[in-house]
Design a protein around this nucleic acid. Structure first.
Length: 474
DNA sequence: AGGTAGTTTGC
DNA sequence: CAAACTACC
């Protein structure tokens, strides 16, 4: 008897429910990976993340080899091909049961429904496990049995349920007896990696992820609340990419944070509590994708905001993409994204608000651009963040809350350190000038004038929102 | 997870 | 007259 584990966004051997359960079997265990480059393209997945995933698959195959579990990897085109491919592999390898961890976005759910139906039809037992979130979507509900639309009550309920259920990460399964089946050559997987310079900021593998978590919890988490908003500092965990591909689980992160907080939930260290809150935002957005699948179809969470005549002016959009808006903090952030595949969270909010509320451009353009560049691109978190910024989402920023990029810059990069790092043309400017250089200084530095006037832009976007405002009497 | 204009307070 | 507070967007 052979049992298979299909790996997707859970590229690790520790705390992996599907792997752990498969390994309770006495038969042989094999691991499967399906590469779906065309689907990735449809999802706007950038080369940074494609590379990172495949490097993590390679790292995973080595971890699995230590357990005597061969990894079979094949390249197909898209999710629609998964059922057929798995059916073939199961037949060829005599696989009688398939385990995998659930994913909650619409296309992924659809894929998994097809797989379940196809394999059940040919007599393969399909076992789905909960992994991506600590509490399954559908299990965190209001008193009315409805999904939450507001974060704070969601968080309160989530913490209560988690306390009752105690989140305990699973161990690495025991080494198994050697089996005959040879794994897919690492060279084949490596041949799928896009030809692009290696990303030195993000070494692949669970080992690195766990090391980062240890380091963060030991050194920086206690100051997280005080430091996380300053992009020039290294105040965040830098774990997002590993969470996005599942090189580490949210459970492991949560458990480490809680343990550092002496298992206190609503008390103890403020930095730890704030970081845990961020893990809960991640849960909140995954639950939203599942409970409100319209957001997976490009729709705004608040339907009336889809009446807003967002612009798609390519000239302005390109200025934003390339970091030439004439707002130093925005341009520095965009260059960090393009260069490293990552952007500081505070700046994600700043540039997203700028694109939507100053340039009045469709938030979907920004959402797609982020996915094309982010190494940690995650549909739910990215869509949630964009809709928060655009004021179209669940528990979003109110439409009249518009970050003033210059004010944000003064508050969170007071010395201009971050700006100087990414905009060398402004590096000689004094802190009093760097956030909004005078016309003369811009000319001397070869730095563009602002593409829009702050005041004018804010007036406009507020008026547009008021135009589509739902009547209280409707 | 805000900004801003206008007003009041407090030295 | 600047910080603090308030109302509104």
């Amino acid at each position: 008897m052979t049992v298979a584990v299909w790996f997707r966004n859970d590229l690790r051997v520790h705390d992996n429910p599907a792997l752990f359960e498969a390994c309770r079997s006495t038969g042989d265990v094999v691991a499967l990976y399906l590469h779906t480059p065309e689907q990735w393209r449809d999802h706007d997945m950038g080369l940074n993340k494609q590379r990172f995933i495949l490097e993590n698959v390679v790292a995973l195959s080595k971890e699995l080899a230590k357990l005597n579990i061969p990894l079979l990897a094949i390249s197909i085109a898209r999710f629609a091909d998964c059922a057929r491919a798995l059916e073939n592999i199961c037949r060829e390898q005599g696989i009688t049961a398939l385990h995998f961890n659930e994913e909650y976005e619409l296309n992924e759910l659809h894929r998994d429904t097809q797989v379940f139906a196809a394999l059940s039809r040919v007599g393969v037992a399909v076992h789905r496990h909960q992994d991506q979130v600590m509490l399954a979507p559908g299990s965190v509900l209001t008193g009315q049995g409805q999904p939450f639309r507001v974060f704070t009550p969601f968080k309160r309920c989530w913490l209560k349920l988690v306390q009752e259920s105690s989140i305990q990460p699973l161990p690495i399964p025991k080494k198994r007896r050697a089996i005959v089946l040879a794994p897919t050559a690492v060279e084949l997987i490596e041949s799928w990696v896009p030809a692009q310079p290696a990303n030195a900021f993000w070494p692949a593998g669970s080992e690195e992820a766990l090391h980062r978590l240890d380091d963060f919890v030991a050194q920086r988490i206690a100051q997280y609340d005080a430091q996380r908003d300053f992009p020039a500092l290294d105040g965040t965990s830098q774990l997002s990419a590993y969470l996005a591909v599942g090189a580490i689980s949210a459970r492991t992160c949560f458990h480490a944070a809680l343990s550092a907080n002496h298992f206190e939930w609503d008390s103890g260290n403020k930095g730890i509590q704030t970081w845990i809150s961020e893990l809960i935002w991640r849960e909140f957005y995954k639950h939203l994708s599942y409970n409100f699948p319209d957001v997976c179809k490009g729709k705004a969470f608040q339907p009336h905001t889809d009446l807003i005549p967002w612009q798609r002016n390519p000239k302005l959009f390109n200025a934003w993409c390339e970091g030439r808006t004439g707002y130093p903090i925005v341009d520095a952030a965009m260059r960090q994204l393009i260069t490293t595949g990552w952007m500081h969270n505070r700046l994600r909010m700043v540039v997203a608000m700028f694109l939507t509320k100053h340039l009045f451009m469709d938030w979907r353009l920004g959402e797609a651009f982020f996915m094309q560049h982010l190494i940690d691109g995650d549909f739910s978190a990215n869509n949630g963040g964009w809709q928060w910024s655009a004021s179209t989402g669940a528990d979003a920023a109110p439409y009249f809350r518009v970050f003033n990029p210059t004010r944000q810059s003064e508050r969170f990069d007071a010395e201009g350190e971050f700006i100087r790092r990414w905009l060398p043309e402004l590096s000689s400017l004094h802190r009093s000038q760097i956030h909004d250089p005078s016309p003369l200084e811009r000319q001397l530095c070869g730095y563009p004038a602002p593409v829009v006037d702050h005041r004018t832009a804010v007036e406009r976007v507020k008026a547009e929102f008021q135009n589509v405002k739902t009547s209280e009497f409707a």
